[in-house]
Amino acid sequence: MRTRLPLLCLTLLAACQTSSQPYAPIDNVRYSAIGADPFWMVTIGDDRIVLRIGQPGSDVRDISYPRTLPVIQGNLTRWQSGEGTQVITVEARRMPERCEHSGRRYEDHVRVMLSGRMLEGCGGRLIR
């Protein structure tokens, strides 16, 4: 029985390590933002911008765009990517009052414009 106990412990540890990872559309995240009504999330990485839109557990879509360098003007940072009717603009604005989403406070107020549609939310660093 003693020889089986270490094997059982190793099996249980291995099972814990194979738990599902959180959603990560890209490696090396440079900026992220989140909003509601409808739920959306933008993640900007080294090589692409990914917009996830829709309620988790139902109809969720990921739309990818090539990453561009941001344009910074004072307290506004803007990324724009795409062509034709598939263009995304992400604007992050740092303001004196912090942005709040789901009881958490963020550094930036964020606006995402997507082919005539505007989504608003929060992004950047989480403020404690």
Rank of each mutant, 00 (worst) to 15 (best):
S81L: 03
G82I: 07
G82F: 07
G82W: 04
E83N: 10
E83T: 09
E83H: 04
E83G: 08
G84W: 01
T85V: 08
Q86P: 00
Q86I: 00
Q86M: 05
Q86L: 03
Q86T: 00
V87T: 09
I88T: 02
I88W: 00
T89M: 11
T89K: 11
T89A: 13
T89Y: 00
V90C: 06
V90W: 02
V90L: 08
V90F: 03
E91C: 05
A92F: 05
A92Q: 05
R93P: 01
R93L: 13
R93N: 07
R94Y: 04
R94Q: 14
M95I: 10
M95P: 00
P96I: 11
P96V: 12
P96E: 08
E97A: 13
E97Q: 15
R98M: 11
R98C: 03
R98D: 06
C99Y: 06
C99N: 09
C99W: 04
C99H: 07
E100K: 14
E100Q: 15
H101D: 09
H101N: 13
H101R: 14
H101E: 10
S102H: 13
S102D: 14
S102A: 15
S102T: 12
G103E: 10
G103R: 14
R104K: 14
R104W: 06
R104P: 01
R105M: 10
R105V: 04
Y106R: 06
Y106S: 03
E107R: 15
E107Q: 15
E107H: 08
E107S: 12
D108A: 14
D108T: 08
D108H: 12
D108Q: 11
H109R: 12
V110R: 03
V110P: 04
V110L: 08
V110Q: 03
R111A: 12
R111N: 04
R111M: 12
V112C: 05
V112M: 06
V112H: 01
V112Q: 02
M113R: 15
M113Y: 01
M113K: 14
M113D: 07
L114P: 02
L114S: 03
L114T: 02
